[in-house]
Design a protein around this nucleic acid. Structure first.
Length: 932
DNA sequence: TTGATATAGTAGCCTTTGGTGTTG
DNA sequence: ACAACACCTTTGGCTACTATATCA
């Protein structure tokens, strides 16, 4: 009925908002069947009522208001769009003038049909009847109260009028006060998580694809041939350092330029080849080429990518500013992404593209162009794999203000320009020094300073144009430099932005582009490794945005192996020419390279800087401030203090202890030590309070009324229960044993988890206690669940033995009973068949004149069959033969009334195939049955 | 812009030991 | 008389978490 109403309401365009209409439309599709069937009945009922209805409606005109609550329209929004807050709408309608037709007619119809006054609150509403042609649809159904949506009134008035509804407002609702509070449902959350996971898997696959393309010998050779001779030997040093890579990076950056979209039809491999040829390509391709080059130079190199996945949390739509159509912003995860990706990419007027066309303005004007990665994956993948720039824009466009956009455009412009600037500097002088010494001041900050200068530079490119390009770090390389640190180090090499060893800046750069640095994955040897820790210092910020780590680790585990082998093998191969002992040594050292990195990343994880805001400590993995302790938590020991946040001392998370009641500890096989003072005493309220009072009195424990004493684990010791003595099981006050776990069993007893043990124990006169294993809620009550019994260990075997015997007996009995029942049911079946046949003969086949004779005949036959069955029952043979199919196929001869069939053994035939035996009487009557 | 705080909605945890009538 | 079984009815209080608004 709800659906039907929605469908109708949609027809009448009672709602203004597009999303609401859309919603109703969706609903109407599903409900159209209902409606069609309803029309027949409704039409008849309502035609007769139309006249009455009109009268009533006219009477009520001007005196009736409308109850306006059509929240149901949105509650089942299948598009996942936010419901338009019905409460809000109601408030907004207060004091408005509503001129309407059909909706009021609905109210009135309800009056007619149900004689129930509609809820009238809005006095003085103006009702005008223009058309009630659809009233036949409106009759005879359950009415629901509806409200009028008030958004975007102006643009929709026309539509409303066309559809027969006019809504006028004295005052337009203040759009700034519109609030749409809608929380994601569990289903939406689940969906978002699944999408997130699938997206991750797709991007992992993508990364592996790119990685393997980087190993192509042809591409590597071509790159080497392009490389100037003086750069060729640069990296051929025993202890490679990041500094040594800088000239290479500079050359690469100046040689290859990043442009927008690539040909989506090509495979990545061929796209890479053409990028190599044309020396321009997407940032992904350029980064991949750099990886190929480094690998060609025999450097251990990974392709690193930020996996820019769809959000783990459902994106709840924000309320839209007035005049902005929600449909334009897309609705779901896919919609929004698709829209945002497609729009700038294919627009011939796209400034980015036009800029890309003018790429030969080498230098500043070339300002690295939007790198529309080629999209060759599934829709979801390509959506997620969308370029960071689009990502930025997408995320900005909805909630961001104009000013923000402008600022970011400028910033982006500056970033790209500065990146080029750096390159030039490098080529002329030693930029490496500049970069390494400027690690304290982020290069991105410096770029920001230059923003204004760049945006007003002589290139004539507006900031808006520049906004399409960001130096968003999405792809880069990691080169293993044995000359860095003591043990060697993976060095960040971003040829797209011409940055070497700038790992500490990636986070800031990503943040500047509104790019979430949630997953940074390094690819090598067809494997992958999560190296997010290297680039992310504020882990607490991204932790909640990452998928369940158990799942993620499991996914990565096999890939990590591959990656580890690959990054070790490269060095291994290099050493192959050397002598055997050296080779082993190298193999050992490379084998630990991966674990060394693991340690490094783990160290980073454990030495995360203290957050500066208090909120961050709420769920921080490492740190806690006291205010975020919940009522069952305490700091023990209370220290050391690691620092302060807004005056609050920061403690290690490891100091947080969970407190429990005595009973809870008992369940875990622990008991509170004697004379321990509760670590915390909580006040209880309400019902629990009273019960706790009683308990406390009973046990003579805590003096407090309405409180509960909590203890920490350090105040407990292993549970000591009175042992079983003389075969007697120690029981609790209820005469049972609570078996929460094995630890709760009194020493010397055993829990036998078998059904029907109580009678056995009773029969053997062995002391036992029912074992309560938990509670279940039924009928609104907590009911104890019992499973088996607890007995002294020495009786275990005796009980089990007797139990086995008892069970055997029981099963035999059960079998016997079921056989008897089967027999009885067969008898019933046969008897009913006979009765049926008799009735059939008597009343269906036979003409009235013949009926007497037929009856006699059939009766006779039936009796015989029945009797034969009865007779057989008496013979032992019967028990071996259980007929499944019994049918009489005797000729329709009239027999003497007192004839008794005799089935001689020699007249029997057996069909071996179907195990069917046929017994025949000399009179011609035969019985066929199947032997089991 | 960021952070603190208040507020509100919601999901999910925790709670925890029947009473009565009928049948065999 | 007694044991076994069926049926009844379908909690609800509290907290953590999250999102939002507002203010500094």
């Amino acid at each position: 009925m709800r659906t039907r109403n929605q469908a109708k309401l949609q027809n009448q365009s009672t709602a203004n908002e597009e999303s609401v209409k859309h919603c109703a439309e969706m609903e109407s599709r599903s409900g159209c069947k209902d409606r069609a069937s309803d029309n027949e009945t409704l039409a008849n009922i309502s035609r007769g009522a139309v006249g009455k209805l009109l009268k009533r409606v006219n009477k009520s005109r001007g005196s009736r208001g409308v109850n306006t609550d059509d929240s149901y329209l949105c509650k089942k929004d299948s598009t996942g769009k936010p419901e338009t807050g019905s409460k809000k709408t109601e408030t907004q309608l207060t004091g408005t003038t509503v001129a309407r037709t059909t909706l009021d007619a609905e109210c009135c119809t309800r009056d007619v049909l149900q004689n129930v006054p509609s809820e009238v609150e809005n006095e003085g509403t103006d009702v005008q009847y223009q058309s009630i042609e659809r009233e036949d649809e409106l009759d005879g159904i359950d009415w629901e109260d509806g409200s009028v949506h008030t958004l975007k009134s102006e643009s929709n008035i026309n539509e409303d009028t066309i559809n027969g509804v006019t809504v006028e407002f004295d005052a337009l609702p203040d759009s700034s006060k519109q609030k749409t509070v809608r929380r994601a449902t569990a289903e939406e959350k689940e969906l978002a998580e699944v999408v997130h996971k699938v997206n991750l898997l797709c991007l992992l696959a993508r990364g592996r694809l790119v990685d393997s393309a980087c190993n192509d010998p042809l591409i590597q050779a071509s790159l080497l041939s392009l490389l100037p001779a003086h750069l060729l030997k640069l990296t051929d040093v025993p202890k490679l350092t990041a500094k040594a890579l800088t000239p290479l990076v500079s050359w690469f950056h100046s040689h290859f330029c990043v442009r927008g979209a690539s040909d989506t039809e090509k495979s990545f491999h061929s796209a890479l080849a053409s990028t190599l040829e044309s020396q321009e390509g997407t940032s992904e391709e350029v980064a991949a080429l750099s990886v190929a080059l480094f690998r060609a130079l025999d450097l251990t190199t990974r392709f690193v990518s930020i996996l820019d996945v769809a959000s783990l949390k459902p994106e709840i739509e924000k309320p839209y500013p007035s005049g902005q159509s929600p449909s334009k912003a897309g609705s779901g995860i896919f919609n929004s992404s698709t829209l945002m990706v497609a729009a700038p990419k294919y627009s011939p007027l796209s400034p980015a593209k036009s800029l890309a066309d003018g790429k030969h303005n080498n230098g500043k004007a070339r300002a690295t162009i939007t790198d529309k990665s080629d999209k060759r994956m599934s829709p979801s993948t390509s959506d997620a794999q969308r370029d960071a720039n689009d990502e930025c824009i997408m995320k900005r466009e909805r909630p961001k203000r104009k000013g923000d956009l402008e600022f970011e455009m400028q910033l982006e412009m500056a970033l790209s320009s500065t990146a080029v600037e750096i390159v030039r500097n490098t080529m002329v002088s030693e930029l490496a020094d500049v970069q390494s010494t400027s690690s304290n001041v982020s290069p991105f900050k410096k770029k920001k300073i230059k923003a204004e200068e760049c945006s007003t530079s002589s290139h004539g490119i507006s900031t808006a144009v520049g906004s399409r390009k960001v130096g968003a770090p999405l792809y880069w390389a990691e080169v293993y430099c044995s000359g860095e640190n003591l043990t060697g180090k993976w060095v960040h090499v971003d040829v797209v932005n011409a940055i070497t060893d700038g790992e500490q800046n990636v986070e800031a750069a990503a943040a500047a582009c509104k790019l979430h640095l949630r997953y940074v994955v390094a690819f090598a040897g067809n494997g992958a490794k999560d190296v997010t820790r290297r680039y992310c210092t504020k882990w607490y910020k991204i932790a909640s945005e990452r998928v369940n780590s158990i799942w993620w680790d499991a996914v990565l585990a096999p890939l990590k192996e591959l990656e580890s082998v690959a990054t070790s093998d490269v060095v291994h191969l290099r050493q192959e020419t050397s002598d055997e002992s050296k080779k082993t040594e190298v193999a050992q050292s490379t084998a630990t390279r991966s674990s060394l990195e693991d340690m490094e990343l783990e160290t980073r994880a454990l030495t995360e800087p203290l957050p500066t805001n208090q909120q961050a400590y709420r769920n921080h993995r490492l740190y806690i401030i006291e205010r975020w302790l919940n009522k069952y938590q305490i700091l023990y020991p209370k220290g050391p203090v690691l620092g302060f946040c807004s005056g609050h001392p920061v403690y290690p998370r490891s100091c947080v202890q969970t407190l429990k009641r005595k009973e809870k500890w008992f369940r875990e096989g622990l008991q509170v030590k004697a004379n321990e003072i509760p670590a915390k005493v909580l006040k209880h309220s309400g019902k629990q309070n009273k019960e706790q009072d009683v308990k406390d009195h009973d046990y003579g424990e805590e003096d407090c009324g309405g409180t509960v004493a909590l203890y920490g684990q350090w105040q407990t010791e292993p549970l000591f229960l009175p042992p079983a003595v003389n075969g007697i099981v120690p029981k609790n006050e209820r005469g049972q044993v609570d078996v929460w776990s094995e630890k709760c069993l009194p020493p010397g007893t055993v829990h036998l988890r078998l059904p029907r043990l109580v009678p056995v124990a009773k029969r053997l006169e062995i002391d036992f206690a029912p074992a309560m294993v938990g509670f279940e809620f039924r009928n609104g009550r907590a009911l104890p669940v019992y499973e088996g019994i607890v007995v002294c260990t020495e009786f275990k075997d005796a009980i089990l033995e007797t139990y086995a015997e008892e069970e055997e007996r029981r099963q035999a009995k059960e079998r016997k009973r079921s056989e008897a029942e089967a027999l009885s049911r067969w008898y019933q079946l046969l008897a009913s068949l006979i009765t049926r046949q008799r009735l059939h003969n008597c009343y269906v086949d036979g003409a009235s004149s013949q009926s007497a004779i037929n009856f006699a005949t059939s009766n006779d036959k039936s009796c015989l069959l029945a009797r034969s069955t009865e007779d057989k029952k008496k013979t032992p043979e019967y028990h071996q033969e259980k007929s499944e199919i019994a049918q009489s196929n005797s000729p329709p001869t009239v027999l003497a009334e007192d004839h008794v069939h005799v089935f001689l053994v020699e007249d029997q035939t057996v069909d071996e195939e179907s195990s069917t035996r046929t017994k025949r009487c000399r009179c011609g009557f035969s019985v066929q049955y199947e032997e089991l």
